[in-house]
């Protein structure tokens, strides 16, 4: 019996030790590896035979703190000329981690796809037409051809870029770059940003 009498004392001292030794770790700065802070739309003019001419025009939208609450989003005006054809290369960046996310998008080409929406692509008199032209032949939208109508119905429009992740690429309609019901193909939006478009 005597040993049992001392048991609570042992347990008490053991528990006090546990109390003293249990503290939370110091916090660590977490690298924001998933955040997209910048999207660059690089337009390069093409001549009739498809050769690049002139300098590349870059339009940027950025969100310094990514998707955390912070500074407001800024987006450049996209200025293009009527009647011309451009090659559109999209770059997606994480400036916080100095990382090019475009590569990851290309690596997971079967799970990602850009859609081009807004009034710039809507209706029969839409000022812009987009055709996927990715190097791998897959429909991703990292590279594509944008044709500007020679006589657009209007000169100011909305240019909306949506990057879908984890979608069903075989969903009926999903191959259309202007597929407005993209949510029906499942997945979620990694990017959804609207640029003002001005045609000169």
């Amino acid at each position: 019996m005597k040993t049992y009498h001392k048991l609570p004392i042992y347990v008490l001292s053991a528990s006090l030790f546990a109390f003293a030794s249990c503290e939370s770790e110091d916090p660590v700065i977490e690298n924001e590896e998933e955040v997209i802070t910048d999207i660059n739309l690089n337009f390069t003019e093409l001549d009739e035979s498809g050769n690049e001419v002139g300098t590349t025009l870059t339009f940027n939208a950025s969100d310094a703190e990514g998707i955390e609450v912070g500074d407001a989003l800024t987006a450049d005006d996209i200025e293009l000329e009527t009647g011309k054809t451009y090659r559109l290369d999209i770059e997606v960046l994480n400036a916080i981690e100095n990382e090019d996310i475009t590569e990851e998008v290309l690596e997971e080409g079967d799970e990602h796809q850009f859609y081009f929406l807004g009034s710039a692509f809507e209706g029969s008199s839409a000022p812009l037409t987009y055709v996927y032209d990715d190097e791998s032949g897959e429909l991703i939208g990292v590279s594509g051809i944008v044709t500007v109508s020679s006589s657009p119905g209007f000169n100011n429009a909305q240019f909306r870029v949506v990057l879908r992740h984890d979608l069903d690429k075989n969903f009926p309609g999903a191959t259309n770059p202007n597929f407005s019901n993209f949510t029906e193909a499942g997945g979620e939006s990694d990017l959804d940003v609207t640029f003002p478009l001005i045609l000169n």
């Binding site: 997209i36 989003l73 939006s189 940003v193």
Partner: peptide
């Protein structure tokens, strides 16, 4: 809240 990822 409007971000690059859309609205929340």
């Amino acid at each position: 809240f409007v971000s690059l990822r859309g609205t929340f």
